[in-house]
Design a protein around this nucleic acid. Structure first.
Lengths: 199, 199
DNA sequence: GAAGATATGGACCGCCGGTCAACTTGTCAA
DNA sequence: TTGACAAGTTGACCGGCGGTCCATATCTTC
C-alpha cells in the first residue's frame, strides 16, 4: 500500500548501485579501509567514478550506505525480533544481548566500520546511530535510574571502537574481547556477575 | 650521570623543533585537525616543509610527539605524584582519579587527540599508550580480580573517544560527560556508587 | 678558519576525493 | 513503434595533500 520510494530508481541505476556496494564491500574486506580508493571501487564495479559520486554524494555517503545495509538486520531484530534481543525480555538482558550482537556486527565488518569512522569527522548523527543511542539509553534508564543513561550509553557504544576490535582480531583474541565487552556491560548494569577469564 | 640523548641536537634544530611543535599546536587548536596541513604548519613555524619531515618523519610522528609532550605531566603525576593520582591511595581511588585526569587531558587537547588518532591506523602502540594500558590493567586487576583486567582496561581507555568528547564539548555538556565517565569507571570498579545527574 | 657532520627548504611526485559538461540510455505517452 | 525528455553515466580534470630529494646553508669541533 505505501510505496517504498517517492521516485522509483531506473533499472540500470539499481544494478550499478548494487555493483558499487558489493565491490566496495569486497575491496574493503580484502585490503583494509586505508588502501581502497574510490577509483579502485569504480573499476572493480565496472562503472565510472562519477557514477559513485552521483549516487552516494561522497566517500562518506557510500560508507554510510554500506553500514546501513549491514545494520538493518540487527535493527529489525531489536525492534521486532525474539527476546532477549527483541522486546519482551527484561531490560538488563536486552542490553547484554544488544551489546553482544553489536560487537559481533562490528567484528564481522571491522574494515568497513573503520572506513566509516574515518570517512567523516564529527561523530555520525546518522539515522542508525541515533537509533542505537536511543535504544541503549532507554534500556539503561530502566535498569539504572540513578545514572545519566543517555551519556553513559554513548560512552558504552563508543567503547566498541573498531580499531581496538581489529587489533584484538589480529591478535587472535576476539573471544577474549567479546567476554570483556560483556563484562563491561554487566558491570554497568550492576549485576553481581562473575565472568570467566581467558588467557 | 646517564645522558639524555645518545647524540645531542644542534642548537638551530632545537629551536626549529620547538617552533614547529608550537605552531602545530596552535593551528590544531584554532582550526581543527582536519583543516591543518603540514604546509600550513611549516609556514606558521617559519620553516621549510622538508624540515618537519626530517625532524618527525611523518605527520603521525609529529602528532605523536605533541601528544607525548602533553601526556608527560600526567604520567609523572601517576608515577611519582601525590595520591590519589600517584602511589599510595587504594587502587579504586587511583583508577577514578586517573580517568578523571585523563578525561581532562583529552578535553584540554581534543583537536590534537583527534589529529593523533586520525594520523595513523592501527591503534597506537606508543610508549605512552602502553604505559596507560599497564597502569589501568594493574590497578583494575587489584580491584576486580574476577575480570580480564588487561582487555577491560583497554575498553575503558577506548571509551574516552576524542570524537565523542568533542561532540559533548560543542554541545556545552563537558561536565555532564565527565560525570558519566566517572560513573562508568565507578560501575566497573563495582562501587555501590550513586552519581548525581545533570540535564 | 677549515672540514665535515647536520640541518634546511621548496620544487617536485603520485595519489586522492570530488567536479562537470558532454554524452548515452531507460522510460513512457502518444 | 517511436520519439522526446528525464535520468544516469563517464573520465578528463582540478586543487590540495603527505612525502621525497638533493643542492645549499649552517652549526660545531679541532
Amino acid at each position: 500500500m505505501l510505496n517504498e520510494q517517492p521516485r522509483k530508481e531506473r533499472s540500470d541505476a539499481a544494478r550499478n548501485r548494487r555493483a558499487i556496494l558489493d565491490a566496495a564491500d569486497a575491496l574493503l574486506a580484502a585490503h583494509g579501509s586505508e588502501h581502497v580508493s574510490i577509483d579502485q571501487i569504480a573499476a572493480a564495479a565496472g562503472v565510472g567514478k562519477g557514477t559513485i559520486f552521483h549516487r552516494f554524494g561522497s566517500r562518506a555517503g557510500l560508507m554510510r550506505e554500506l553500514v546501513r545495509e549491514r545494520a538493518l538486520a540487527l535493527r529489525d531484530a531489536v525492534t521486532e525480533g525474539e527476546p532477549p534481543l527483541g522486546p519482551g525480555a527484561p531490560a538488563p538482558e536486552r542490553l547484554l544481548a544488544y551489546f553482544d550482537a553489536m560487537f559481533q556486527l562490528i567484528v564481522d565488518n571491522v574494515e568497513l566500520m573503520i572506513a566509516y569512522d574515518n570517512s567523516t569527522r564529527e561523530v555520525q548523527e546518522d539515522e542508525i546511530n541515533v537509533f542505537w543511542a536511543r535504544h541503549i539509553a532507554t534500556l539503561l534508564a530502566e535498569t539504572r535510574p540513578d545514572v545519566d543513561a543517555t551519556v553513559l550509553g554513548r560512552l558504552l557504544l563508543g567503547a566498541l571502537n573498531p580499531d581496538v576490535i581489529l587489533q584484538h582480531i589480529r591478535a587472535g583474541q576476539t573471544e577474549r574481547l567479546a567476554h570483556a565487552v560483556h563484562s563491561l556491560v554487566a558491570s554497568v548494569i550492576g549485576e553481581a556477575h562473575t565472568t570467566d577469564r581467558r588467557t
